[in-house]
Design a protein around this nucleic acid. Structure first.
Lengths: 337, 337
DNA sequence: GACAGATTGGCAAACGTTTGCCAATGTCAC
DNA sequence: GTGACATTGGCAAACGTTTGCCAATCTGTC
């Protein structure tokens, strides 16, 4: 609980519409209208006088007063599953930049993948009268259903809306999986494996199933492919555990698709412990491809998801929705290399 | 610019003090007082009736109205230099959790280390009437000076207030550097180096100078130690570039202190390219020690900074300041391993 | 000179909250 | 019965903004 006896108060934003109005010798309403660009409601002379006064006293509209009146703040909520994941941090960073550019302020919430916390945040953000929601890897929850039903402006990122439709920014996960399948086949790999979280997002699932589907198309039997699903929250651990199962015995794969960088890190660690060298003994391809890889994991080949571009797309999506235009989904192109 | 013709409006928080007041048959003021815990202003019967009504209609105070009246919102601004850095992401994540716990909402701003942007954000946050500021690796700027002068509640993290005093959460950087110096000496290392950013923060400087000072204490001449200062924003690149200078020639060091993980990543990459193996050919110790290291950089030994604990300390600091208590600095203990 | 119509600008209410002040009622002692 | 005093609760203003509506002035035409 915040202390009730706060000795410090923010410097009162001593310059308000009233200050400007007084200086320009007009009423508050006139200033408000001019500040909001409604120029036709005043004579050019008045407009000039008001703008001069605005400049002179350094007036900046108070977002709180405005929010109260308009019933909507300049805040946009980003509700992310796990900030500690570098991919999410990059998304957060680029979104923040794009929002600022558009005149909004980002509020960041980390749900740690927990539905109750997600709902708590959704409620809190609604109370803050946020203008929109950015849901990064949202989990199913009652509050999320309500949100969908309320038609509030929301953009889902990475994971589609678990319960229904909604604007989406991400990549073509199935195609990404398929690309890796083609790559492995064309390289003459014979023993394939795919590692993914058992309780994963739509994204994880689609990547794995796109991979398997393409293999099937090209004549591989499902049984020929090792599928290692891992439990738990940490992709690192999932990868490590999967490695424990995959790398033992004589039928170790010679090529593995890991649906995320972190799973690949875990796999590599276990591979090292088993005396296997990647990529020499077993090729490893992940889908993520954060820039850090080239520094700390040069052994990892990746489908590179352009997370740094997400922010711009997300904000473009929000803006479309705000003006009532439809925004289905935006799948960004990936580089494979 | 946000569209002016927004078709969607947040569901009006249809339940306000007035709703509760009507249902309980009392005035708005009474409800307000009771909701704020001022129980003595009403008879037990009234209190009960009001609380029942609050429950029944599901009343939640509107933070915007409250902020406008109080001149202070429940928002706390975190102004960080670079979210893409995993250490900062961890700090952001833990701070966010601690703030939520305390009933606050975190607004995240990424300055990309640019003073103008930092000032823009400081101004914007002031306009939002935030309750406090968390400045992670703040850079010197006019706005920051103003902030210090205004005595606004602020906690500096990692880097001390570049212009003056202020609450600080971090580690004992000089001691960390000294620890590494002792370690190298005790391990019998003979050719030492330290790599740091030329235009670094107080933290980087202190780590390097703590290292050098301890070496001096123990009889090493400054000239005997390779000091590689790097330019630029990216620590990865700084490390890589420093490696280019350090690893060539015959007098390569057998032990290096890197003041951050990322510099160490860059160093390692360059070492590999030079055919050197870490830690066999050259021991590398960094100060940071993010958990990711054990997965992707097992070759790296680190002073581990407990970033995940920062959030709690930061919020504790803010709360002390809010209630007028002094909060100088809090140096967290590090693990070396 | 009068009237229609456009132009210009102010009044006041409203958003949801907090809080100083006052009014009404109750309690007690004399 | 009267006065002092505590208890209980409401009125109304204020925070900074937006906006519907009305009033005043101006422009032009007959």
């Amino acid at each position: 609980m915040p202390s009730d006896q706060t000795p410090w108060r923010p410097i009162p934003e001593d310059v308000s519409l009233a200050t400007v109005a007084a200086r320009a010798g007009v009423s508050v309403s006139t200033v408000s209208r001019i500040v909001n660009g409604e120029m036709r409601r005043a004579s050019p002379a008045t407009v000039a006088r008001v703008l001069e006064a605005v400049e002179a006293v350094g007036y900046r509209p108070n977002p709180v007063g405005r929010a109260l009146k308009r019933g909507q703040s300049q805040l946009v909520a980003m509700i992310a599953a796990n900030l500690d994941n570098p991919a999410m941090a990059t998304i957060a960073s680029s979104t923040e930049a794009a929002l600022r550019e558009a005149g909004y302020v980002m509020v960041l919430c980390d749900t740690h993948d927990r539905p109750e916390l997600q709902d708590e945040y959704l409620e809190a953000m609604r109370a803050q009268m946020v203008s929109g929601y950015v849901l990064v890897a949202a989990v199913p929850s009652p509050g999320l259903s309500e949100l969908s039903a309320s038609r509030a402006p929301a953009v889902f990122v990475n994971r589609r809306n678990p319960g229904g439709s909604g604007a989406f920014v991400g990549i073509d996960d199935r195609a990404a999986g398929a690309t890796v399948a083609d790559y492995f086949i064309d390289r003459g790999r014979r023993a394939l494996a795919v590692v993914f979280p058992r309780l994963g997002s739509s994204a994880s699932r689609d990547r794995a199933s796109g991979f398997l589907a393409r293999l099937r198309e090209r004549g591989w039997a499902d049984e020929a492919i090792i599928q290692a699903a891992g439990d738990g929250r940490s992709h690192l651990q999932i990868g490590y555990d999967a490695g424990s199962r995959i790398f033992v015995g004589s039928d170790a794969p010679d090529a593995i698709l890991s649906v995320s960088d972190q799973i690949a890190y875990g796999l590599n660690r276990r591979a090292l412990e088993c005396g296997l060298k990647i990529p020499d003994d077993c090729e490893l391809v992940s889908i993520d491809g954060t820039p850090l890889n080239q520094w700390v994991a040069p052994w990892l080949k990746s489908i590179e998801i352009p997370y740094a571009l997400y922010g711009a797309e997300i904000v473009a999506g929000l803006q479309l929705i705000w003006r009532g235009a439809p925004f289905g989904e935006r799948l960004l192109p990936c580089k494979f290399g």
